[in-house]
Simulated scan of single mutants.
Amino acid sequence: MGKLLTGLVLSSALILGACSNDANEATNANQEVAAEEVKENNETKQQDNDVIVFEVDGEKKEEKLESPYIKGTLAEAVYLPKEFDTKNVNDNKFEAMGTGEYEDFLFSVAREENAKDLEFEIFVMKRNASIQFGDKKTVVTEIDLEKHPVLKEKYDYVIKSELGIGNKFSALKVNNGERIVVSVMIKNQDKLNYGEFALELLRKVELPEPA
């Protein structure tokens, strides 16, 4: 009887050991798969950010993008055509002016602390956007975020301002008492049909993770 019990105990130990090894191998395999998926997602994301594809009057255009230096308080990264020259970089503001084909384009990210609730910040943004330039009346149009899921994921509110002297696309994010506004200004009258390009630049911004 004693030998039989000893045999049963040894058999059980071997089975448990084998199960444990199988479980460890499965866990390791799952971890490797997950790590590979993260790597692939990061590589795909980087590839997506390397180019911008948009349409102008029905014509498809594609531009290679670069990621200029920006303070982490404003964004983790922004992606712009190489024709954009950085003009201002500090903890609270980033500006890049377009040259060549993108002359009179201005891309900016601005950050302010002590933000109020979202409703109030939207009111302030709309009021500021409605400032009239000379005898030109400003027309402000809210962008329907339901039609732009990537923008909806990143921002709380997006508008287009027709200023008379050009168009401006502005995106608002309010988080933990901070307000971040990303904007693309188009002052070149021949490029006012580059609205999709402006929205694509807004989509490419990687905002800071919530604190």
Rank of each mutant, 00 (worst) to 15 (best):
Y79W: 13
L74W: 03
E43A: 14
G134E: 00
K71R: 09
P149T: 13
E121C: 04
N188G: 13
M1S: 11
N128P: 06
L163P: 04
K60W: 08
F123Y: 03
E25V: 12
L80A: 09
V140D: 07
K154I: 02
E25P: 04
K39P: 11
E36M: 12
A129Y: 05
A29I: 09
N175W: 11
K152C: 07
L201I: 00
F169G: 05
N175D: 09
S20T: 05
S108P: 00
G72S: 08
Y69C: 02
S11R: 07
V205C: 06
D135L: 09
S67L: 07
I15G: 10
V184T: 04
E142V: 10
K61R: 10
G177K: 09
N49W: 04
R203F: 01
L65A: 12
G7L: 12
M1F: 07
L65G: 14
D104P: 00
V9A: 15
E153V: 05
V53G: 04
F197I: 00
N41M: 14
F123V: 02
A18E: 06
A96N: 11
I70H: 03
A34Y: 15
N30I: 05
I122D: 13
K3G: 01
K45L: 11
Y157A: 02
Y69R: 07
K45G: 15
E200Y: 00
N176V: 07
V51N: 06
K93G: 00
I122E: 14
K64Y: 11
L10M: 12
T73P: 00
N90M: 07
S20Q: 06
A96F: 05
E25D: 12
N28Y: 13
A18L: 11
Q132Y: 06
F133M: 12
G177N: 10
G166V: 09
N42G: 08
T27Y: 15
E209R: 05
A110D: 09
P210Y: 12
L199T: 01
K64G: 11
T141G: 07
Q31M: 14
F197D: 05
L16R: 00
P208K: 07
V89W: 02
A129K: 02
L16Q: 07
P149Q: 08
C19N: 09
G100C: 01
D57A: 14
K152G: 09
N175A: 12
G166E: 07
V181Q: 09
N42F: 09
I159F: 00
Y69S: 06
Q132R: 15
K64E: 11
I159W: 01
G7K: 14
Y69T: 11
K137E: 12
V174D: 13
D91S: 04
E95K: 01
L207Y: 07
N30R: 14
E196W: 04
N114Y: 10
Y194V: 06
N88D: 11
E119N: 15
V181W: 06
S20D: 10
K204H: 08
K82H: 09
N21D: 11
I165L: 07
E59L: 07
K152N: 13
E153W: 03
K160V: 08
V38P: 05
K152E: 15
F120A: 11
D190N: 03
I180Q: 04
N92H: 08
M1I: 09
V78P: 04
V53S: 03
L65K: 15
K71I: 01
F133P: 03
S170N: 12
K204F: 00
